[in-house]
Every structure is written in C-alpha cells, then in structure tokens.
Design a protein around this nucleic acid. Structure first.
Length: 919
RNA sequence: GCCCAGGUGGCGGAAUUGGUAGACGCGCACGACUCAAACUCGUGUACCUCUGGUGUGCGGGUUCGAUUCCCGCCCUGGGCACCA
C-alpha cells in the first residue's frame, strides 16, 4: 500500500468536520488553554506560503495542549473591513461585502486545506452586523466613560457629572484635552450644548479639532501607525498635515499603565521596546516665561538643570500665540515660515531633518530667574503636538537648538562643564553645572532636582511627566467600516441608544465622497437617526474591530453582551498569541488599551489581554531575473551576461526550473510584450537566470501558493516543511526543492507502519523503545521552547534509527503516532488507525517519558589534548573522576599524543569530557 | 543618528548550564537497480599546503577548554526618527 496524502487528507478533513473533532468544550472541568492567531485581512490574492507559518506553529501548540489534557480554544476569523475591498468597489461598483465574502471563502478553503484544528463554529467577521453591533456598543461605552486619575481607572460619565454638579472642576483629577477651571455654578447653569462641549473634554471617545495625517489620494485621515516613511501604508500615497474636527480615542490616559504593563508580559524584547519607545515617557518640568503684556508662555523641558543656559525661546509655527506676539515688522518673515511648514508633507519633513527654518517674532520673554530678555522665535523644528508646542532653547546642550542658534547667530551659553561647545552641543548628563546662580557646582542629577524644587516653590511651573504618544484619531472618511453610532442635534453629538444598534451600513450609489467633500455615508438618504437627527458620516478605523475580537471568540453568539462575564472569567488571558511583528505599535497597543478599559469597567478579569506573544518570521521569496540586452528584445543567459549591456527584468518563478533556468516558450507566452523574445543560450543550451531573496509578494512575481505545495506534497508535507525551514521567529527564504526530504521522510514513516514486522526480539525492542522515549522527550522540550524545526529533525532521526531494525514493537509506533500528530495530523490519524485503534488520535494522552531510556550505561568520553579532541573512549557512567583519569592516561592513544611532553594538568569533567594539558 | 534582532559549510540550519562545531535536510559526487532515464536504495561531502594544520563576521581578552562570557569594530535585517 502506497502512502497517498491526497486521499488520507481528504478522508480526515471530512471526518473532523463531521465529528466536530475540534469543537471547544463548553463548561469543561479541564484546565483551559487559549491559542490565538492574529486574524487575517482577506485580501484578493489569497494566501502565500509565508502566511501559514505562524498558523502552523500555533496549531501544533493547540494540538499538543489537547494531548496534554487541556480544553483548547483555537479559533479563527476575519478582519474584514478595510481599504482594498473599498478601492475595488470604487473601481468596479461591486459592493465591498461581495468581494469580502468571496475572499473569505477562499481563505477558509485554503486554511482548511492545511488541516488546521480551528473551531469554526466560533468564527467572527468584523464586517458582520452581529459583530460590529458590539464594536459600536464599545464605542458608546468609551463615549460614556472618563479616566479618573485619582482612582487610576476609567469610570462611567455619571461619576464625573456628579463631581461637576457638586464641585465644578475643583479637585477633579481627570485625563482631558485641556485643563478647565469651572465652578459648580458655571456647570449647572450651562446649556445642554455647552455641557456637552465640557464633557467632550473628558470622554474617552471624543471629538476635537486636531492636527491629523490627511491622505488626499485615499480621501481620509490616517493614524500614525498607518503611515510608513511619510506615505500611507496601504497604497503608498503621500500624507500631509491638516487640522480637522475628528473623533479620537483618549489612549494617552492609559500611557503609564500601558508602559508598566509591559513588564509582566512574556513578549519579545524588540516588541516591548518598540511599544516603550512609541509611548515615549519623559520626565521634566513645565516652566512659565512671562511676556511684556501680561501673557505668559509655557514650555516643557526635560533639562530644567540647564535653565540658565536658555538664550531664546522657540514656538512651533502652529502655536496659538504666534499671531498675537509677532510684531508688524516681523509679520512677513513669520508668515512665510508658517506657510512653508503648512505646505510640507510628512515625507519632506522627515527627509530633511538637517536644516531648520525659523524667524524672530519681534517679541521677548523674561527669564524666570534672571529676568533677562530672551527673544521669541518661530521654528519649524518645534512640533505643535508635543509638550506645549514651545521650547526653551539651550543651544549649548541640545543639538537641535545648537543648529538653530548657529544658523541665526543666537548666543550659545555653556552651563554644564565638560564639552566643547564651540564644536557641538554637549548633551551628556556627566558634568558639573556652571554659570547658573544657585545651581553652580551641582551634578546634573542634583541640579534637576533642585531646579524643579525652585520652579515649584516660586510658582513658575511644576515637574511633569510627558508622553510622546498622541491620542488616536478614530474617524475615517471611508465607506467600508463600522458606522459611528452618533447623531447630531445641531452640533451636539448625541449617542444612539443601545437598542438602536447595530447601526447598519447604508446602501450608497457610489463609494466616493460627495461633491461637497463629505464622506461616502453622506450619500445615503436619509442618513439620520430614528428621531430625524443627521448621523455621523465617518466610519471607524481598521483597528476598531480587531481591538476586541479575541474576547468575542470566548462567547461568539452572545446577544446580551459582547462577552459573558463567566466566559471571560474562564478563558482569562490569551495564553499564546501568534502573529507578525508588524503589529507592534498598532493593533497590539490599541488592543491593550481597550482591554485595560474593559478591565476598569469590570467586564474582563485581566488588564493585559495577551500573556505570551510570539512573532513568526517572514518567509521570503526567491525572485528570478532575466537579462535583456539593452534596447532589444533579445535575452541572454546569466552566464554570458557580462559580455553584454543588459538590464534585469523580473520573471514569474513558475517559469523557472530547479537549475535556475528559464522556460523560454513559457516566458514568450507569459506576457504579450515577450512574445517576440529571442534568446542567447549558454553552452549547455540553458537560459540561466539571476536569483535574489526578497519579500514574497505578487508584484515581485515570486509567490509560492500553499495549495499548490499541498497538492504536490500533501498538507502534512507542507506543515512539516514550513517548520523544518528554521527557527519560527527568524526570516528565511522559501525553497520548494528542499521539501523532497520531507516527502522521503513521510514515505519512510509509512513503510515502518505498513511493512515492518511488529515482532522484535528483546534487544530490538529495547533499542526501538529507547529511540521512542528519546523522541518524545526531545519533542516535549521543543514544544516548551517553540523550537519546531528541531522536532522535525528528531522525527527523522527516529525514523532513520528504526529503519535500520528488522522489527518494531507496537508501543514505539503508538508513541510516534501521537507525538507526530500535532505536526502531521492527517498522517498521524491514519497511522493510529493502522495500529488498530479507533479514531481519533486528537485526544490521546501525550506519552510519558521513561527517563531510564534517556541515560546510557557508558559515556563516550572525548579526550582532548590542549583543548583539541583527538579520540573517544567508552567509560562506564558511574566511574569516579580519578578512575576516568587513570583509564585515559593508560590508553594506548594517549601515549602517542603526549609524545614525550610533560603532562601539566588533567581536567576531568565527570560525564562530559577529559582534557590533558601537555607542554 | 538612536533602539532591537542577527552573522556558523555550496544552501536552510543544529549544538539545552562554557565541554567532541557542522546534527537533520537540500544540493553535489560516486555506486546499486534499469536497455536508458526518473524514482528508490547505499556511500561520501567544512576548508587547506593533508601522519598535520585552520575554522562559527573582524580584532583583542578571560579560561584547561569559547559558536556560547567580556571589550572594541564591521556587516545584514527590522523598528523609531526634529518628541525639547
């Protein structure tokens, strides 16, 4: 009987589906284990072999945990709202839900072809109204909550309103957009509209006029994490800064907790570091500089110790005081800086960090201590969104201020000794404070402390922790997303009632903005609430639906709440979250933010949603390039290309054979422009190509399709090979050729189970069992260390050892089938059946290792001379060190290597090695 | 510029606490089977000036012994990038 993966895989996939083998148990008494994959966006091009890498690894863990007696939650779903489906809708007029549904179907088929053990009865799709109803509900909950900095948690707006009723803003500790000062009377006498304006200052989901990243080509705003190098992540369009009224999320309220929470997480250092950097905590002081005319200007600085080195102040071009401060003579210069800054795209701003532009406003401020007159400048290197949008410039000790001072001839005053400030700014914290009045002679650390004390005592400002992270813009001017469940009573936002949810996406005639520039939802008529108020026209961003889906899987059909309290309690945290490192600062931060909020409101038992995170590496493609002689349609083999002037053009890797040669007729048929191609072959008659490792993508023509690999080598072959390629977290190139080793392995496994005698003699039985126990031990170790590539090697070693025996005991084969099943589940099911067992192998207990099989009676001691291994001798395990030494010294080969030299020292490491030092 | 990860044969990679560097697989070479080829099976395969020597990016150090620990540097990949 031949090993036929196609038949076996079809058979078992049907069996699993019909018997609901992977359905998670409800009300189980078993311990739980939650293994989650980052759900995919179902793109039109389907999966390539890189996508399933993480899914295979997590599926192995899920299956291993089932064998180990856990009730496993291993779900899959789709992040189904998003730009590509909408762009396609704009081009074709087809509703994005149709494209999305087709793509999801294809993804589901592709995933099932690989034999994943998902419980599909829990599938979620973010674009499904029964799902986004709860995304909208969460939005309303955030709208109806504020962050109490006193209790350090989110609370219902009711407690805020109660405080305002009684005290106004007195003693109110709240995360807010700007700090307000109101008496209880002011609040109580305010109109509904004025009250809402005040509340907006505190709500966790709120509207504000803010600087946004506007992408004209996509016609929408983008979050910082949706931009790469100044271009939109999707589509690569330029992005500019623009001020707009926008829905935002007050994630900054959670900055400190999001930072602290990282310490308890079992995540890679690189992801934790990028989150820390993104949050960007810095300590310093807010400091007031008074102006001539009653006004004052506030700056944020992390170096209050250098306060006597301030020689000018700089405002961002957008700073609200710029216009008021600028004198008539300076108006032109300042205006030109402001206009220039406004015109710059994000991209230009980043490309050009070496030059600064600025102008003097004509105004002065007074130094808070020395009362010296300091000129106030406008400079484009100061960002309006960070700190107060104004800085005290200390050019001697800040390189950006230094650059600015040099360019405009402003004074540079050394206040920390130790640098060479005629050459560059001295930013080190190692130094003694000089020319600084009461700070003279102190270290930087001492001066920081004392300066803040003095600033606070004299009422000039206060110590302050500042975060780089900004609040997240939430509205998108797009169609294919969750509608925001808000109506407007004139300008006052009014939340829809929970009973009115879901607010379903309306039908529109086109998926484009209206002629007036309104988002596509404005095309719906009427787009208004049941009581006739106009509805919000922006939709939620992609990250809304994906920030809580891991909770919905716990309780996917609940119509009463987004997740039931008992289910949330039982499943707790995600034990293992597998996904790409590209979500380091987007999805993973937003999900943590929302989950902290749910925790504060008492809806989930943990603030942190993902206990352990593993980032699978990228599988790269190996692109192929053909040489074309410049200006012709003649193509030349790579081996001859050096004799011609050529350009290299990418070729679909389907047209390349295993010797890196081009299928010439196939190439001519591939694209019309190559129909008339002529070829100059090398002496072997081949058309050699250049190969290069790059990211796998459709546009590079280097995509390998998992379906095709599974058809040729079986799903189990694909699974084993993806794991065998190398460490999970590393990037590595895909080379289909290598999979033949896996094929050979699986066939040899099959032979062991179908042709090998099961009546071993005692010696063979012991040898076979030793191999089996060592295999189980190794695989178990690898499971705990996510080292799946070495497990595949261990399987091969076991099979090689067993193949050399004439018979195998059934106990060895049984262990093998169970241990193989997480990796190659279809084959393992079939093997389990061949041993006479009834299905399924899925819940068979993981074999127990008999440690006596792991220990050998004798140890092959390597014998080294001066650290170089020369030979080995077998010595009984328990032999004491002194005896090992004499055995080695008495060995005939030892004499040869001593070769008349003196033995200076003999090192015996019991059980390991012998090293003889001669000289 | 800053932060993080990594650098081992022709290739993917292994080496679990400082203890035999190159497991396992690909590729390649030779052999068996075959009229022949493919498949399959077997043997070999780090390098060199080969009774020996060298070798885990480079240079140093610690140690009886270093891919592993320490110092300095180079390169590759990823992230951040005027954050005061």
């Amino acid at each position: 009987m031949e090993y036929n993966p196609a038949d076996i895989e079809r058979k078992w996939q049907t069996y699993w589906r019909e018997n609901k083998t992977y359905q998670t148990e409800e009300n189980s008494s078993k311990p739980k284990y939650y293994v989650l994959d980052m759900f995919p966006y179902p793109s039109g091009s389907g999966l390539h072999v890189g996508h399933p890498l993480g899914y295979i690894a997590s599926d192995i863990v899920a299956r291993y945990k089932r064998h180990s007696g856990f009730n496993v939650l291993h779900p899959m779903g789709f992040d189904a709202f998003g730009l590509p489906a909408e762009q396609y809708a704009i081009q074709t007029g087809q509703h994005p839900s149709i494209t999305t549904e087709t793509n999801i179907q294809r993804y589901r088929d592709q995933l099932n072809r690989i034999g994943f053990s998902y419980d599909w009865s829990r599938e979620v799709q973010t674009c499904d109204p029964s799902y986004y109803r709860w995304t909208q509900w969460i939005f309303l909950s955030l709208f109806n909550s504020w962050y109490n900095e006193g209790s350090q948690k989110a609370e219902s707006m009711e407690t805020l309103i109660a405080h305002l009723n009684q005290w106004g803003t007195k003693n109110l500790q709240a995360a807010c957009t700007r700090s307000l000062s109101l008496e209880a009377n002011d609040w109580n006498n305010a109109t509904a509209s004025k009250k809402e304006e005040i509340l907006q200052n505190y709500r966790l989901a709120y509207r504000s006029e803010s600087w946004v990243n506007w992408c004209p080509a996509l016609g929408t705003v983008l979050a910082n994490d949706e931009i790469k190098d100044g271009f939109s992540e999707r589509g690569g369009h330029p992005v500019v800064q623009k001020q707009m009224m926008q829905w935002s999320m007050r994630i900054t309220a959670y900055a400190q907790r999001l930072l602290d929470g990282l310490d308890s997480l079992d995540w890679s250092d690189s992801i934790k570091e990028s989150q820390r950097h993104w949050i960007g905590r810095s300590e310093g002081a807010l400091l007031e500089f008074s102006l001539d005319n009653q006004l004052s200007l506030q700056v944020f600085t992390t170096r209050p110790d250098t306060v006597f080195g301030v020689s000018f102040l700089v405002l961002s071009p957008e700073h609200p005081l710029v216009v008021a401060l600028t004198t008539a003579e300076q108006r032109g210069a300042v205006q030109s800086v402001r206009e220039k800054a406004a015109r710059r795209t994000e991209r230009e701003r980043m490309a050009d960090t070496k030059t600064v532009h600025g102008a003097w406003t004509g105004a002065y401020a007074l130094h808070p201590f020395s009362k010296e007159k300091l000129p106030i400048w406008v400079g484009d290197y100061v960002l309006s969104g960070y700190g107060t949008g104004a800085v005290m410039a200390v050019p001697a000790h800040d390189s950006r201020d230094y650059l600015f001072a040099q360019q405009y001839g402003l004074p540079i005053r050394e206040v920390i000794a130790g640098g060479q400030i005629d050459k560059e700014a001295f930013e080190s914290h190692e130094g003694i404070v000089v020319q600084s009045d009461f700070l003279n002679g102190l270290s930087v650390a001492e001066a920081m402390k004392l300066s803040i004390e003095q600033i606070e005592q004299q009422g000039l400002g206060q110590g302050r922790v500042q975060f780089r992270m900004r609040n997240a813009i939430f509205g998108r001017q797009r169609y294919w997303g969750e509608p925001i469940p808000i109506a407007y009573d004139t300008d006052r936002p009014v939340p829809l009632l929970v009973e009115a949810l879901p607010l379903v996406l309306p039908e529109v005639d086109k998926y484009l903005p209206t002629e007036e520039g309104e988002p596509p939802l404005a095309r719906a008529s009427p787009w208004e609430s049941s009581d006739g108020f106009p509805l919000e026209t922006t939709t939620m961003p992609g990250w809304a639906g994906s920030s809580w889906y891991f909770l919905r899987y716990m309780d996917p059909h609940n119509t009463e709440s987004f997740v039931g309290a008992e289910k949330a309690q039982y499943w707790g945290q995600v034990d293992l979250y597998m996904g790409g490192a590209e979500h380091a600062t987007g999805h993973l931060l937003y999900s943590r933010f929302w989950n902290h909020f749910f925790f504060d409101r008492g809806w989930v038992p943990y603030a942190e949603p993902f206990k352990k995170l593993v980032n699978q590496g990228m599988i790269q493609g190996v692109s192929a390039f053909v040489h074309r002689i410049v200006g012709t349609q003649t193509f030349v083999s790579a081996s001859l290309a050096s004799s011609y002037a050529t350009t290299q053009l990418p070729v679909d890797i389907a047209l390349v054979n295993e010797k890196d040669q081009l299928d010439c007729p196939g190439f001519q048929a591939w694209l019309p422009e190559y129909a008339a191609a002529a070829f100059i072959l090398d002496s072997d008659g081949g058309m050699l190509l250049e190969r290069e490792v790059e990211k796998m993508s459709k546009s590079k023509h280097n995509v390998v399709n998992p379906d095709a690999v599974a058809d040729a080598y079986g799903a189990d072959g694909l699974r084993l090979y993806e794991m065998f390629l190398g460490p999970l977290e590393q990037s590595k190139p895909w080379n289909t050729q290598g999979i033949s080793g896996i094929s050979t392995f699986l066939r040899r496994v099959w032979v062991l189970f179908t042709e090998k005698s099961r009546q071993p003699n005692e010696q063979e039985k012991q040898r076979a069992l030793k191999t089996a126990h060592r295999l189980v031990h190794k695989v178990q170790y690898d499971m705990d260390h996510f080292s799946f590539n070495t497990s595949v090697s261990a399987f091969m070693i076991a099979v090689n050892e067993w193949s050399a025996l004439s018979a195998l005991p059934v106990e060895a084969l049984e262990r093998f089938a169970v241990v193989l099943s997480p990796f190659a589940p279809h084959t393992a099911e079939e093997l389990w059946g061949l041993l006479g067992h009834t299905p399924s192998v899925t819940h068979q207990p993981w074999p127990i290792v008999d440690v006596s099989f792991l220990i050998d009676d004798t140890i092959p001691y390597p014998v080294q001379f001066n650290g170089k291994t020369r030979f080995q001798i077998d010595i009984a395990r328990e032999t004491p060190a002194s005896e090992v030494e004499s055995l080695v010294l008495a060995h005939e080969q030892t004499l040869k290597y001593i070769d008349g030299k003196t033995i200076k020292k003999v090192i015996v490491v019991p059980g390991r090695i012998v090293n003889i030092v001669v000289g």
